[in-house]
């Protein structure tokens, strides 16, 4: 498994994330229309399409460089709240990614999570992308600590992210545009947590069976 987290693997992860967002674009936009402003699917699709083009045009040689290209491209193209938030996630992950094993990936994702929390001044239970990312990071750490192989650990992380996404439905939003609705935001699945769960699902698909 040692070489699962190489430049090609991370590129495949981001390509799969882009594919899933393209496929789920209208779903993301519908979720956002209910409690936000109906642009999450379109914005993230535009940004990830630009990321895939950037990585095609200029393939990054090392894993951290892949994540940095993802970060700067998202910050440059997405706008809204998701641009700085996903951009910060990948920028911090890039700065932390040390080696090519599961532990290095887990540390990088954890750094990304901390960056998102700081940039968005949000915490768990605020009905944001953190509610999918945080359980995913916890599950990944736990599975790796139990000595499970990276592909199993990433599947556990993706399942935890999906669980966290589903858990946003009854929450009352405290951050972002959904917070303007107060209690009326309850009963709707958070679009940011939904796209974050797709990112983890993509990792489980693309980063497994490689090493």
């Amino acid at each position: 498994m040692a070489d699962a987290v190489d430049a090609a693997g991370l590129t495949a992860w981001v390509q799969e994330f882009a594919r899933l967002v393209r496929e789920q674009r209208d779903v993301l936009t519908e979720l956002d229309a209910a409690i936000g402003d109906a642009d999450h699917g379109a914005n993230l699709d535009r940004g990830l399409t630009a990321v895939v083009s950037a990585l095609d045009a200029d393939p990054a040689a090392d894993p951290a460089a892949v994540l940095k290209t993802v970060a700067t491209t998202l910050i440059r193209t997405v706008g809204g709240a998701s641009g700085p938030l996903y951009g910060t996630f990948f920028l911090r992950a890039s700065g932390t990614l040390g080696g090519g094993d599961g532990a290095a990936l887990a540390a990088a994702l954890r750094a990304g999570l901390d960056g998102v929390a700081a940039r968005g001044k949000a915490g768990p239970g605020d009905k944001t992308m953190l509610d999918a990312l945080a359980p995913a990071c916890d599950a990944l750490d736990e599975a790796l600590a139990d000595g499970r192989p990276l592909d199993e650990a990433l599947r556990a992380a993706a399942e935890a992210a999906a669980g966290g996404r589903d858990a946003t439905v009854p929450m009352v939003a405290r951050k972002g545009r959904a917070s303007y609705l107060g209690e009326r935001s309850a009963g709707h699945q958070d679009p940011g947590a939904t796209s974050a769960a797709l990112m983890l699902q993509a990792a489980a698909t693309a980063l497994t069976g490689r090493g």
Partner: peptide
């Protein structure tokens, strides 16, 4: 920015 989306940095 894009419609209803803030400009980028």
């Amino acid at each position: 920015g894009e419609v209803f989306t803030s400009p980028v940095p």
